[in-house]
Amino acid sequence: MGSVDSWVWWLLVAVGLGLPLAVTSLPEFGMFAVGAAVAAAAAGLGADAVWQFVTFIAISVAMLVLVRPIAYRQLRKGPQVRMGIEALQGATAIVQERVDGGAEGRIKLNGEIWSARALHPERVYEPGQQVDVVEIQGATALVV
């Protein structure tokens, strides 16, 4: 079996390890598949069988130690869903009654009327203008 044959075998191993990754979504299979692909490259460059195997083990272990914790942290975190008042921050609203830094005005935010105050006291927003909600303090929206 020549070096050409061994790199083909390593590629078959990489593909074989990639299939369970697609079916089970376990990232470890992908990490072993990367190790096999790097071993195939080593074989293609003329490394003997011992170095191919050492390369496979070293890359696979390095991936498990370095990449696996990051992958699982991302999987556990899940999508970021903002709810309640957090979801209103950054939303766009329409001024209903004049809003400034002194007296509270009114805005229409997500179909509801909210009291609002300008974040910067010198700014004035007239009815019909669009504003962005920066923060919610109690029942009052701070807008820019």
Rank of each mutant, 00 (worst) to 15 (best):
A40L: 06
A40G: 15
A41S: 09
A41I: 15
A41M: 11
A41T: 14
A42N: 06
A42L: 12
A43P: 13
A43Q: 06
G44H: 07
G44I: 05
G44S: 04
L45Q: 08
L45T: 06
G46Y: 12
G46L: 07
A47Y: 14
A47S: 13
A47R: 01
D48W: 14
D48P: 15
D48S: 11
D48A: 12
A49N: 04
V50S: 02
V50I: 13
W51N: 03
Q52Y: 10
Q52F: 12
Q52R: 12
Q52P: 12
F53M: 09
F53K: 01
V54Y: 10
T55E: 07
T55N: 05
T55R: 03
T55K: 02
F56V: 05
F56E: 04
F56I: 05
F56M: 05
I57R: 01
I57H: 03
I57F: 10
A58M: 08
I59H: 03
I59R: 02
I59L: 07
I59K: 01
I59M: 03
S60L: 06
S60G: 04
S60Y: 07
V61K: 00
V61M: 01
V61N: 02
V61I: 15
V61G: 02
V61F: 03
A62V: 14
M63H: 02
M63W: 01
L64P: 12
L64S: 06
L64E: 08
L64F: 09
V65A: 05
L66P: 11
L66V: 15
L66F: 12
V67D: 01
V67E: 00
V67L: 10
R68Y: 10
R68L: 13
R68D: 06
R68G: 02
R68T: 07
I70H: 02
I70M: 04
I70T: 05
I70G: 00
A71E: 04
A71T: 09
A71F: 14
Y72H: 09
Y72Q: 05
R73W: 08
R73M: 04
Q74L: 15
Q74R: 15
Q74I: 14
Q74N: 12
Q74A: 12
L75N: 02
L75V: 10
L75M: 14
R76Y: 13
R76S: 11
R76T: 09
K77H: 10
K77P: 04
K77S: 12
G78H: 06
G78P: 11
G78N: 04
P79A: 07
P79D: 08
P79F: 03
P79V: 07
P79C: 00
Q80E: 14
Q80I: 15
V81Q: 06
V81W: 09
R82Y: 08
R82D: 03
R82W: 04
M83A: 06
G84H: 03
G84M: 05
I85C: 00
I85R: 03
I85V: 15
